[in-house]
Design a protein around this nucleic acid. Structure first.
Lengths: 228, 228
DNA sequence: ACCTATTCGAGAACACTGTTCTCGCCGAAC
DNA sequence: GTTCGGCGAGAACAGTGTTCTCGAATAGGT
């Protein structure tokens, strides 16, 4: 394994720079950013971009993967800054980290959690980074399995239970179906609130955004059985 | 008030036809549908569309308003098909109606509940139709205020409580702050699940979609205090 | 029945877009 | 030192939203 050649290094720096400029354009133009415009911003002709990304979709895909990694990184860092046995603290920290990132990068958030472009099929490279947040949430309940409060019984239908069992088998660490179910509920709610906030559905409605969010996430922690 | 002139009638029919064709294109091309393409589908030249809609954004806005009206209509119809005192039945009927519409019209759903186009500011015409679903949900708890089960206490911070009180004052029919809070939680969750399902985040994860949805909505009904 | 004013669709034009192809150029490897 | 691969420039093509002008049709008023 030799050190990366100079060529390879400047190539990677160039790709990084292109993505950075594209991210800036994302903030103003959304998903229909213009290749030619980012090329202009780099004093480069548009066709030159094709040396680094085979198409506009490929560039967007790269941005999507970066975005998934960025949320996951923010969430993971927030989680590790809290003592591992403070389950509720970790839970809230992760949720708040996701929110902070989403509010700071609304366009990138919209790119990954908004409506997908119909023609665009998410490449397989995106599914692993996309799952990291939910896996983090599951880890929290796995780590504290013995300290969790029992969830109020709520019948789960057989087919749904089968889905849950399949999910559990796919990964190391055991969880009860009911518990995983609640984690999925909380996970759904996390992004439900964030979609509403980031996409402007709370405008002229809720002013106390942070309190609103914390309150929702706290309710979800209760529902999941995280101890106080 | 005279009957609409012939001119006005064919004009409105033409607008309707344009929107219908545009809706078809929405399903395949999403929000970046092509004016020229819908014009071609109508054996019309693109500039002729400008007699009916001043811009592409205006056409999209019309589609957005129609979409809001369509969900609201589906929800309202489902609600009125259930006896008014069957609160839980009404609640589930409304949620399922929204889901059915969303799955049948994923592109239009994405248009109104996905990420907004950054440059595009939602015109005031859209805010009233947009609010109809949440108002319907609030109506359910207002209608059955005396039959609701008490919600488990969960402290609401002062600023958030102020928001809730303001919302309550804005409309006829009285609700407790705690109750409105739970309705907002349920409302958030409804669209949280739907976003995940329609936008494909449940792929390779949950097969029993209907059961999954019903289960979530049932939990939300519990949380809101709707009687069994 | 005529005249007029308004509305409509066609078509050309402009400034964009993503993408492809060809052509020089420069640096790296043999 | 020559060859080769990668890189950027530039032209080209098809397609886009939007504006403008120009005939034709048509409704309303007399």
């Amino acid at each position: 394994m030799s050190a990366p050649s100079l060529r390879a290094r400047v190539r990677s720096e160039m790709s990084q720079e292109i993505k950075a400029v594209a991210r800036r354009h994302l903030a103003t133009d959304g998903a229909n950013l213009s290749l030619r415009a980012v090329a202009r911003d780099m004093d480069i002709v548009a066709s030159a971009l094709y040396r680094y990304f085979p198409s506009r979709d490929a560039l967007l895909t790269a941005l999507i993967i970066d975005a998934y990694d960025a949320v996951a990184a923010a969430a993971t860092e927030a989680d590790s800054a809290v003592p591992r046995d403070d389950l509720r603290g970790r839970w809230l920290a992760v949720c708040r980290a996701v929110r902070t990132w989403a509010i700071a990068n609304p366009a990138e958030y919209g790119l990954i959690y908004g409506a997908p472009v119909p023609g665009y099929a998410a490449p397989p490279d995106t599914v692993k980074p996309a799952a990291r947040v939910i896996l983090l949430l599951i880890d929290i309940v796995i780590d504290g399995a013995d300290r969790l409060r029992p969830v109020k019984a709520s019948p789960i239908s057989a087919p749904l239970r089968a889905d849950l069992r399949r999910l559990i088998e796919q990964r190391p660490g055991d969880v009860m179906e009911e518990r995983l179910d609640r984690v999925l509920v909380a996970w759904t709610h996390l992004f439900g609130v964030l979609n509403f906030e980031v996409f402007g559905r709370l405008d002229d409605m809720i002013e106390a955004r942070t309190e609103y969010f914390d309150h929702h996430m706290s309710l979800m922690a209760d529902l999941t059985g995280l101890p106080h």
